[in-house]
C-alpha cells in the first residue's frame, strides 16, 4: 500500500477536476429542407413562407440585406484541473458550425446561391451547392 501511495496521489491529481462538455446551438437546423430551392426561380418570399427566416444572433447567422444564414453551432471542451492547494486549469475547446446553410438573393429578390455544408470540426463537406450565374 505504501508503495502504491504515490501512484494513487498522482491519479488523484489528474483525475479530480476532469470535465468533458458539449454545447450545441440550434440543432433543428439539420431538419431544414433546401432541396426544393431553385436559383434564378425561387424567390425570397417563397423561402420565407416555406422555411421561415433564420434567427439572428451575433456570430450565429441571421438575416442580412441579401442573404439568409442558418447555423448549427457545436462546441466541445475538455478541462483538467489538476493539483492540490495550487490548481492550474488546462482547457482546450473547439467550436465550429456543424451545419451551415447560406441562401443568397440577387437584386430582384430571387435566390442566386444555395450553399450547404457540414463539418465535424476537422473536415468540411459541401452537401448542397446550387448557383445561378449572372
Amino acid at each position: 500500500m505504501v508503495r502504491r501511495l504515490p501512484i494513487i496521489i498522482l491519479a488523484a491529481f489528474f483525475l479530480d477536476g476532469c470535465k468533458i462538455a458539449r454545447d450545441q446551438v440550434n440543432i433543428h437546423v439539420r431538419d431544414i429542407d433546401t432541396s426544393w430551392i431553385e436559383p434564378g426561380v425561387t424567390t425570397r418570399r417563397q423561402v420565407i413562407d416555406r422555411i421561415g427566416m433564420p434567427p439572428t444572433a451575433k456570430g450565429l447567422g441571421g438575416v442580412t440585406a441579401d442573404a439568409f444564414r442558418w447555423t448549427l453551432y457545436d462546441k466541445r471542451t475538455g478541462t483538467l484541473e489538476a493539483g492540490y492547494i495550487v490548481t492550474p486549469t488546462f482547457e482546450l475547446s473547439r467550436a465550429h458550425f456543424a451545419e451551415d446553410i447560406l441562401v443568397r438573393f440577387d437584386e430582384s429578390g430571387k435566390v442566386s446561391l444555395v450553399s450547404r455544408t457540414v463539418s465535424d470540426g476537422k473536415n468540411v463537406r459541401i452537401t448542397e451547392w446550387k448557383e445561378c450565374r449572372k
Binding site: P6, P88, E91, L92, S93, A95, K122, V124
Partner: peptide
C-alpha cells in the same frame, strides 16, 4: 517516487494553467 511527486507539484505551479479556445474553420483547413 516522492521526488517525482514534488517535481510534478512544482511543474503544475510553474505551468500556470493553459487555456486555448478556437472558433471557426479547423486549423488544418486554414
Amino acid at each position: 517516487m516522492m521526488r517525482i511527486i514534488v517535481l510534478l507539484f512544482l511543474f503544475l505551479f510553474a505551468a500556470s494553467g493553459c487555456i486555448h479556445h478556437r472558433i471557426g474553420m479547423p486549423e488544418s483547413a486554414a
